[in-house]
Design a protein around this nucleic acid. Sequence first.
DNA 1: TTTGTATCCTACAAAATTAGTAGTATATTT
DNA 2: AAATATACTACTAATTTTGTAGGATACAAA
Lengths: 149, 149
Amino acid sequence: MLPKKTKYAIKALILLAREYKEQRPLKISKIAEAERIPRKFLEAIMVQLRNEGIVESKMGPTGGYTLLKHPEEVMLSTIIRSTGGPIALLPCVSLNFYERCDECVHEETCGLRDVVLEVREASIKILSKTSLADIIKRENKLIKKHNLQ
Amino acid sequence: MLPKKTKYAIKALILLAREYKEQRPLKISKIAEAERIPRKFLEAIMVQLRNEGIVESKMGPTGGYTLLKHPEEVMLSTIIRSTGGPIALLPCVSLNFYERCDECVHEETCGLRDVVLEVREASIKILSKTSLADIIKRENKLIKKHNLQ
DNA sequence: TTTGTATCCTACAAAATTAGTAGTATATTT
DNA sequence: AAATATACTACTAATTTTGTAGGATACAAA
């Protein structure tokens, strides 16, 4: 499962992506309120996203956060990794949180690892082709569909 | 990520599956030793697997655990669920650990949920078609491949 | 140049989850 | 009856997650 931290990060970035055309910084307090994220927690998350080069920050009044890249270029897989969310089901197939199974004698011949590797591949395939822009598109589509019924 | 509990369960069941033709109960101590799983911890896991109807236990000397179904019928997805391992990336798309996002206003129109739903589908597709027998087959194949090089 | 506002940074703390242990009861075979 | 294996109950320890508190720093506007 993804930690809340990762979910919050994605939610916040979706909001920034919606504001992207304006290119006006969004304040943490605004984001926290809109997405119902604990303010202080979001603060820490945003700093992390800045360190990862995903957003830009500006201090002082008129300050806040802006998306650094175009929403079509910010992939879900990138956000998940940047906030420490693991994608793989086991550490032995994780690219970013790799850890050898201490009980496995031969990692290369582990059948479970082989399957879990396949699952990771399938997941990453989806997550690395889905951008913030895609999520917004999906959202608009779902809203339309939902209103029709 | 899957908890160790789930990984240990799968490892233990693979061993039982390898022994399936014999239909002779395997003792916890043997399994724990072979797979390097803490003995007492494995004990608790095996009881859970028995309650879930995956294995059968027999007490006393000559006792131990036996697989209840044919290895081809025991699917990875079943083991994962039986031991409490979540497959989904978020609780709001989990079948067995469902939990509403408290910050989402409309679950049905959440774009992130929509993507994560797709990832879950892809993962389950693989995990629910892979049996213990399949894992053993993969293992044999990997060993052959590994020895040739 | 002061004041207000926003992010930045360090250091915690509470809560939840995971991983594992201890000890005893119960069943079964020899 | 003795030996051996699982079953059950009740903890404990460690780790991770999810936050919070409080002051430092940057910056714009009056």
